[in-house]
Structures are given as structure tokens and as C-alpha cells.
Design a protein around this nucleic acid. Structure first.
Length: 111
DNA sequence: TTGCTGACCGACG
DNA sequence: CCGTCGGCCAGCA
């Protein structure tokens, strides 16, 4: 219908934009919240498209299940995503979020 | 139009 | 422990 725009990506954008400052989430968590656990890959793909459009989507706040910055290469630089996260107070160690379990933001629970 | 790929995740052997 | 495969949806040649 009109509100949902029949688009998986649109839902992803909506959730990612709701991620609070200094928090992170995972592709699978967002996918699961949307009702499609298997579409975790599409979450990343949606974020990839987001960089082509000015959506204001903090894609750097979205990482994989391990808290690993798998999509850092999509930011154009191998350290861009890492610096963005650290800029928000998030500590990164070897491309991995240190206090991942502490700053993890689950849309299924927080929303 | 068909087919492959992609910032993942979980299961199986 | 490690390698492989399936599933999900959308974009592109």
C-alpha cells in the first residue's frame, strides 16, 4: 500500500535511520525485524544503494553478527567506516567492535 | 527475459 | 575445525 511502498529496501532505510547515536546493529537483526531472516544480504545491498542516494543512512552503524566491519570497503576507504564509528565513541579493534554487545541495538527489542 | 551477483546467517558433513 | 550450500530480494548485462 501507500505506507509501505512495497519495497524491502524502504523498510531497511527506515530502521537504519532509527538507530540512535553511538549504537550499532547487525544485518541479520534488521532482516529478522523485517520478517525475513534470510534476507540479511539484502540489508547490506540496500545500504550499498543508500550511498548512491542521499538518504542520510548511517550505514556505518550496521555491521555483521560478529560486530565485524565487513562493509568497510563500500565506504570507499578501508578505514572510513572504522573512523566514523570511533567518531561516535565506538571502539574498534582489528575491524571489530569491542563493546559490541553493549552498544548493540536490536530493532526487534528497542522498537 | 534469464541469470548472476551481492556489506549475511545458519545448518550440514 | 573448516569448507560448502541454501535462502532471501533487488539491480544490472
Amino acid at each position: 500500500m501507500d505506507a509501505e511502498k512495497s519495497g524491502f529496501f524502504q523498510k531497511v532505510y527506515a530502521v537504519v535511520q532509527k538507530i540512535p547515536y553511538g549504537r550499532v546493529t547487525s544485518y541479520g537483526a534488521v532482516a529478522q525485524y523485517l520478517g525475513s531472516k534470510g534476507s540479511a544480504r539484502m540489508v547490506g545491498w540496500a545500504l550499498n544503494s543508500s550511498k548512491y542516494n542521499l538518504h542520510g543512512i548511517p550505514a556505518h552503524r550496521v555491521v555483521n553478527r560478529q560486530g565485524l566491519l565487513t562493509g568497510k570497503r563500500a565506504f570507499g576507504g578501508q578505514h572510513t567506516m572504522e573512523e566514523l564509528l570511533e567518531s561516535e565513541g565506538i571502539r574498534i579493534k582489528d575491524d571489530q567492535i569491542v563493546n559490541f554487545n553493549e552498544i548493540f541495538w536490536d530493532p526487534a527489542k528497542e522498537l
